[in-house]
Structures are given as C-alpha cells and as structure tokens.
Amino acid sequence: MDIIELFKALVLGIVEGLTEFAPVSSTGHMIIVDDMWLKSEQFLTQYVANTFKVMIQLGSILATVVVFKDRFIDLLGLGGRLNKTTVGPGRLKLSQVIVGLIPAGILGVLFEDYIDEHLFSTETVLIGLVIGAILMIAADRFGPKEPKIQTLDQITYKHAFTIGLVQCFSLWPGFSRSGATISGGVLAGLSHRTAADFTFIMAVPIMFGASAISFYKNLEYFTLDALPFFIVGFISAFVFALISIRFFLKLINRIKLVPFAIYRIVLAGVIALIYFT
C-alpha cells in the first residue's frame, strides 16, 4: 500500500472525526468524499471499504469514551461517582441507555445487509441530508422554548425510548445519528446540550456492536496490506473527534440545530449539481 492510499485513509479519518458528532452525517460525508474523490473501493472490496468506515467510526466512539469517561464509569458502577449534585428523580441509569438503543438496534440487525448493499451511495445520502435537515428545523421550531430536562440525570425511560425511536431514521445513510437523536431529544423536552450528551453516550454501545458484527462478517478480507490503511484512519478519526466533541458541546445550546440544517441543504444542493451534471 503506497503513500497515496494512506493519505486517503487520513482524509477519511479526519472527515469522520470532524463530522461524527455534528448533526451533518459523518457517513454521508465519507460516502461523498470517497465516491466523488478518493475512490478507495478501487483497491478495497466493497465490504472491506464499508468495514473501514465502521472502524473509523469506532475511533470517534473511543474519543467519546475519553470525553465522558466519568459518566461511563458511573453507569457501569465501577466507582468514581460523578462529582455533581443529583438532579431530578435519580441518576441516569445504564438500563435507560439500553432502552434508547433497542429500536434502532433491532432494525439495524434485521436490515444490516440490505443497508450495506443498497443504501451506501451518493444518491441515498442526498435524500438523507435533506429529510434530516427538515426534522432538525422542525425540532427547533416545535420543541419547548424552555426545556424542563437540563441534565442527563433528569432523563426518564420514556425520554430514552422516544429518542431511540427517532434514532431509527439514522439507519438511512446521510440522515445522521446525532441529527436524529438530538432532534428527538429536543422534541421530547430535553435541552440541546442534554440531548447531545445522551446522543453521544448512546452512540458508544451501538457503534461497538456494529463494529463487532462487521469485523466478524468481513474478517477474511483483512490483510497485512490493508492494515496500515485501517490504523491511519482509526487514529486520525480518534484525534479529530476529540477536538470536535468538545467544540460541539460548547456550541450546541447557543446556535441550536437550524444552522446545521441549512448547511445540510446547501451541501445537498451543491453535491447534486456536481454529481448529476
């Protein structure tokens, strides 16, 4: 594998790290960058290329674990309780996170092969970008002006399940997991920051699960030649995700979702113009 291919892995990792936690669709950006410029599937099979995209998402997820390490330690009951006053009916529970994962988890298992084979394309991403943007605008428009849920510890099982239902939309590439779940959280009465925090925490187990399934199904495609490509992508996604998570969490309560929705619509228009002309 030459330096050009490693550069492609670096670029895809950066794109993933910068976009995974913004509601703009990291998968959509990777598909667009790869399909229209990098063409990584010219030297990797389709299944290995898709597995690579899952792996660099895993790099971003590990960055989430670092940022929320105290919260995950608390959820797993490993000691080191959070140094903050409990608000509301009690602390966020691991079982509430699991409830939020159930709807998309079931659909993801049932339709994983179909999604991998038929939905990873520029055309489907354009659809997801636009429809996801509409949902985000609706969330800002119809969500409560003064949300009652201001911390993770105020989230109930009903909130978790509602957000989980909306997360199902993110199985469509381009829709954006964070865009869907933050919108669902805002519509359910959470502040934008709390919805974002819960979104990132839910992303960890679901992406670990997706990675494990993908690795198991495509293990035969991993070779020593492809290994540097995976390592470079993973590291770059991890580093840039650390940067983007902290920046996004400081920003989201202030600017909310509409600016990201406008970006998605403009991006979809530019890509459609380039791709179809």
Rank of each mutant, 00 (worst) to 15 (best):
K145C: 01
V99Y: 08
N83G: 14
R193A: 15
T156E: 13
Q154S: 10
K69L: 14
I73L: 15
G88E: 14
T122V: 14
K148G: 14
G132Q: 01
L165S: 00
G184T: 00
Y157G: 10
H159F: 00
V66W: 07
A139N: 09
G143S: 03
E117W: 03
G185N: 03
R91N: 06
G143H: 05
T151M: 14
V186Y: 00
F198G: 01
A195S: 13
E123W: 00
E146S: 14
L187C: 12
I201M: 12
A196E: 13
G143E: 01
A139E: 07
L78K: 07
P147K: 04
M207H: 03
R91G: 10
V166I: 09
E117R: 10
I134N: 00
L129N: 03
K93R: 13
P205H: 04
A180V: 02
T181L: 07
I102R: 03
G143Y: 11
T199I: 07
K84N: 07
Y157P: 03
I98F: 12
R141L: 12
K69T: 10
T194Y: 11
R91V: 07
Q150V: 15
K69I: 14
Q96Y: 12
D70M: 13
L82P: 02
Q96P: 08
H192P: 05
L171E: 01
P147H: 04
G80I: 14
L187T: 09
E123Q: 01
G174Y: 13
A104Y: 05
I127L: 10
F142N: 04
